[in-house]
Design a protein around this nucleic acid. Sequence first.
RNA 1: GUCCCGUUCGUCUAGAGGCCUAGGACACCUCCCUUUCACGGAGGCGACACGGGUUCGAAUCCCGUACGGGACGCCA
Length: 462
Amino acid sequence: MSVVTRFPPSPTGLMHIGTARTLLYNWLFARKHGGKVVFRIEDTDRERYDPAHVQALINGVKWIGLDYDGEIFSQYENRTRHAEVAQELLKAGKAYYCYCSPDELDAMRENAKAEGKPTFYDRRWRDSKETPPADVKPVIRIKAPIDGATTVPDHVQGDVTVNNEQLDDMIILRSDGTPVYMLAVVVDDHDMGVTHVIRGDDHLNNTFRQNLIYDAMGWKKPEYAHLPLILGPDGSKMSKRHGAASVEEYRDMGYLPEAMRNYLLRLGWSHGDDEIISDAQALEWFNLEHVVRSPARWDFDKLNHLNAHYIKLADDQRLLELIAPFLPAKNDARILAMMQELKSRAVTLIQLADEAAFLAKSVPLDFTPEAEKLLDADAKVAIKAATDKILALQDFTAPAIEQTCRDLAKDIAGGKLGKVMMPLRAALTGRDKSPSLFHAMEILGKEETIKRLKAVGPDASR
RNA sequence: GUCCCGUUCGUCUAGAGGCCUAGGACACCUCCCUUUCACGGAGGCGACACGGGUUCGAAUCCCGUACGGGACGCCA
């Protein structure tokens, strides 16, 4: 049997981070077993449907670096087939028409809750001999077993058992003839040959309802794996309140897709002591057995750590392209020349861009308050002295510049290199923190270096 | 309210009865490196929710309590 997994998001907005992880697990599981992933948009709710949301989902999949097999499937377009199944169930006596109004249902709900009953629908139309009201369009409900218990085997949760009295005669076809989600998923999963349903924990209870349909149709049920949900850093539900709940936001914050993949994979799944896991290793190692059973909190620190790691590994040219949107000015040659050092320091692409920015700027630089403070009277003397020395320097390379600066420090600062370098740092970068200045000066070139030094030296007009 | 699921360092987790004086990672602290900030390197702090069983022996099995999460729509 070849494996078929599924990616069935509902288009409600941006791609949620939990959705991304679910896709990752489905993708890994399918690919590992040489199977397929089908992408199906659960768009049966027409009131909330928005093509932009579908596009957001597609963008999300693309960004995170995963793919799917075949065309994107629209659940809505298959509604006729869903309705046929409902009719089939009706004919077989496994489903029935129910003429209750929403108001009646509300009343039943209130009532059942007050009495502490597990389900609310009283099944009044299940075997009713009453003549149906002519002016009411009925829904179709499926007949659930009245007593006994049902067990669902789950690859993550183990065997889960529920008493059948917890199961309602749920609606499978709305009064307007459109299928309800519960029906649509089952029919689609069956028709598409889905073998493994790997989805969020929030669907665990639905599994029992969905199995009702499989049983009534005599279809083979898929294997299930219910993943625990991702919680926000404070243990509550992951939402915008926590900074970011969608993959798009993480992209915009400067995270690398491979870092996200590693983080998401490891959040809720483990392979011994391994933390840094490549795509190839993930493919080789992934299994459902080591999926954790309890919900995990989102941890920005760990994500940051992974992101920093993957930035160091990333190709320089690629990084240059990725930080371009965050850069106020461009100077590809300089930034590329310094990339090795820049990327060893950055946690996010935004930080990388921020650290690289000084290379592309031109005088007059803007100075941070800390840099401003560094540029006092003593500093200007040092800058002037350095300017003179550098002007005289023939071999304008990092080692030669370093030697010059060290010599100068001996002459005017009792050997304290910092006394010379910190003023230069402020003058050259506009900051009090930066990568190595010797290398930076070489990259800026003699002309630009002198220009920046003169702009803040004692003779400057500022 | 009813039902389902879960509970190991602050966080993510390893652990499937003796290998556990509970391992790793992130964060935090200290030191080293150092022109700044980082990177990197070396150390350190730090957990089996609680209470009962079962067993020669329990983080691991059973029961209960507490806490957390989820589901109870003509939403998906």
